[in-house]
Amino acid sequence: MSDHIVPFKTYFNVILVLIALTVVTVLVSLVDFGVFNLIISMGIATFKAALVLMYFMHLKYDDKSYLVIFLVGVFFLAIIFLFSSFDIITRVVEKSVL
């Protein structure tokens, strides 16, 4: 365990950014960017998640083995996402023959 104490100002800045990004997410949803709406909102969510992980969950300061464990989980999630998107993209629309 690291005895590093994250300064109050860091926590405070992080929460301000998180609140601001929540407002941005809502505002973006009111404008129609077509397919980019989903990409933008997921991008913002991922940035917010990264802030929570790095600062609130101390991944930036703690032992790096925790980061590795977390990334392994995300890696396996990415695999199932990737292969199911292959299926979605290459799916041929046809009537069931059953």
Binding site: D63, Y66, I69, G73, L77, I80, F81, S84
Partner: peptide, 28 residues
């Protein structure tokens, strides 16, 4: 402390994978 947190992160991994299944189904 380091052993406890290691175990907790492994638990969080299983949580991510459990919710992950729902997110994949949502995407499809």
């Amino acid at each position: 402390a380091s052993a406890s947190k290691l175990g907790l992160w492994i638990f969080l991994c299983t949580e991510i994978l459990m919710f992950g299944g729902l997110f994949v189904a949502y995407a499809i």
